[in-house]
Design a protein around this nucleic acid. Structure first.
Lengths: 146, 146
DNA sequence: CCCAATTGATTCAATAATCTAAGGATTAGA
DNA sequence: TCTAATCCTTAGATTATTGAATCAATTGGG
């Protein structure tokens, strides 16, 4: 079972790599695209913490995405220190082109499952997440108290 | 459901990051450690392709792991061009310390599931993998024929 | 048995990405 | 209004990866 999870993760990793090449950006930028798709427009710092980057790295990542025409900076009118990062129309289309079909087929596959079965799978995933989160906490604490 | 999978992946990612810090190596090195743990001693080139690295990158990654005391180079006596990379005793212990408890608890969690339920989950994961693999192929082809 | 071709690993220079720290602009609070 | 805090950017140093060249060992055809 652990192996099945691992294999799935490796495959996802591979797809990210291929998607990066396809879009002409790097893996970090793909991670940012994914965040932006999932969580709507984000400020530079939200994107940074979401993608596990420092501020400086986020700035250059956004630069690259902007240069690639996949995202756009929009100054927040309410607080002009902030920069909101939006997916551009082209960015949205690119994301759809790469991940749309994957999501669609996954969705289709789910239709063969009964509600009870879906429940089992989802609970499994949530428990696994809980386990990981608990241990992430343990590691964070261990790292802190060196 | 897609969200549950995504969340789990993010959490795994976070753990890799924390583990890297804990062990004093980088993410690439953690990927190598994971490969070495899962697939036993590997030659430098097997490790390279397994971890998605070029030859040069693999060499320096092994250098770092060796310097950190986590792995060891062993010249293959049968074919002396080859270098087998083994986890060191300390490497094995470090992997166990970080991932052992996670695996143990995951294993324990699985015991609450019936055989039928496990079957459902495993099939789900395999189908998801299949879907990803199919689309990885699509992307690879698209990239190739540019 | 030898030599050319191949294979495996390493080295090195160039490139790319990241980090940290400092700086500039804006906002919020006293 | 002045000060501190916040947000993003910039710049220099560090780190990692790539791709090509190199060295060593092996293999196979003649």
């Amino acid at each position: 079972m652990a192996r099945a999870v691992q294999d799935l993760q490796d495959a996802t990793d591979l797809i990210d790599e291929l998607a990066a090449r396809r879009l002409g950006v790097n893996r970090t930028d793909v991670r940012c695209l994914s965040r932006l798709t999932a969580r709507g427009p984000l400020t530079a710092s939200e994107l940074a913490s979401g993608a596990g980057l420092t501020g400086g790295a986020a700035t250059t990542a956004i630069d690259r995405l902007e240069r690639a025409g996949l995202a756009e900076r929009v100054r927040d009118t309410a607080d002009r220190r902030r920069v909101l990062v939006h997916l551009s129309e082209r960015g949205r289309a690119a994301v759809e082109e790469v991940w749309g079909p994957i999501a669609a087929e996954a969705q289709a596959g789910l239709r063969r499952y009964t509600v009870a079965e879906l429940e089992v799978v989802e609970t499994f995933l949530r428990l696994a997440l809980l386990n990981q989160t608990r241990h992430a906490e343990r590691l964070r604490k261990d790292n802190a108290e060196e």
